[in-house]
């Protein structure tokens, strides 16, 4: 009897909980789930009912292949740059004394509070033909003509790497300072050189956070829109830019939806790889 009444109380309580989360549930369904279903619906709709014609059209369009390759190239370059610069930066911050850490972290976080749009336009001022970098190079006599940083892969990659850097640095820094300093002391007493201590003892303990951060940067890079649009000047279109074209310029929403669905599945695939990686490397990594 006691068990039964307990269960009843429990059930009543959980119905109460459903009541409280209902508004949020409705919001998520209307604002998030229904649009996704609509996009799926668009992507498989054609003049004569449901088919995969839209996807077929995309795959057979040479422009789409070029854009996919662009996206892949920019994503890989951005991720590699952020991965290398991010680890060095996070490691350097973790070695600073307390005040230094706070200042350095503030400098990393500060750009986060400024709109991506503003930061991207700022790069035009810095990298343009009459920008700070080119002016300096020319006045130093290092280059005769301005180097074109903008409206090519280089500009897009620089801009994206800059915006994505905190995404890796912050979680990575948190993981780096969590590593027990006594592990390094123990390794030193066991005879390991500084290089060996870093690669065999320190780095493996930060690998999980590092891979998670890299994966996050990759996922965000694949869907980037503003920076390639502005710093690429339309010459380095990525998937998101093509979606925009198919919605605003060409108006073919079914193709735009098909690209969105492809992007979604690529992202889910990356996430699955990350999860498998996480399982294989074990809990400690």
């Amino acid at each position: 009897m006691a068990t039964v009444s307990h269960t009843q109380t429990y059930r009543r309580k959980s119905w109460g909980a459903v009541f409280f989360i209902l508004p949020l549930l409705i919001l998520v369904v209307i604002g998030f789930d229904i649009p996704i279903v609509t996009i799926f619906n668009y992507s498989i709709s054609s003049a004569d009912g449901y088919s995969l014609d839209n996807f077929y059209e995309l795959v057979t369009t040479p422009v789409f292949a070029k854009v996919a390759l662009n996206t892949l190239r920019i994503t890989v370059m951005t991720t590699v740059i952020v991965a290398i610069a991010g680890y060095i930066l996070a490691y350097w911050i973790s070695t600073l004394p307390k005040t230094g850490r706070m200042i350095a972290l503030a400098l990393v976080v500060l750009p986060f509070w400024i709109s991506v749009l503003v930061r991207t336009y700022a790069w035009i001022v810095v990298l343009g033909n009459a920008g700070i970098v080119n002016k300096t190079l020319q006045s130093l006599g290092l280059t005769a003509a301005p180097i074109s940083f903008l409206y090519n892969d280089l500009g897009v990659t620089i801009g994206m790497a800059n915006i994505q850097l905190p995404l890796l640095v912050l979680p990575l820094y948190a993981a780096l300072i969590r590593v027990d300093q006594r592990h390094m002391q123990a390794a030193a007493s066991l005879g390991a050189s500084k290089r060996v201590i870093f690669w065999r003892v320190f780095f493996p303990q930060t690998l999980k956070a590092y891979l998670a951060g890299i994966m996050l940067v990759t996922i965000v890079s694949i869907g980037f829109y503003i920076t390639p649009a502005i710093l690429g000047g339309g010459r380095v279109p990525m998937m998101s830019n093509v979606i925009e074209t198919y919605i605003n310029t060409v108006p073919r929403w079914e193709l735009a939806s098909a690209i969105a669905v492809i992007l979604l599945f690529v992202t889910l695939g990356l996430f699955a790889i990350y999860r498998r990686l996480e399982n294989r490397t074990g809990d400690e990594l």
Partner: peptide, 14 residues
């Protein structure tokens, strides 16, 4: 060439 044991053991978790 000293063997050192910490109170926390400091075993390498990975």
């Amino acid at each position: 060439n000293i063997g050192l044991v910490f109170q926390s053991y400091a075993l390498f978790p990975h």
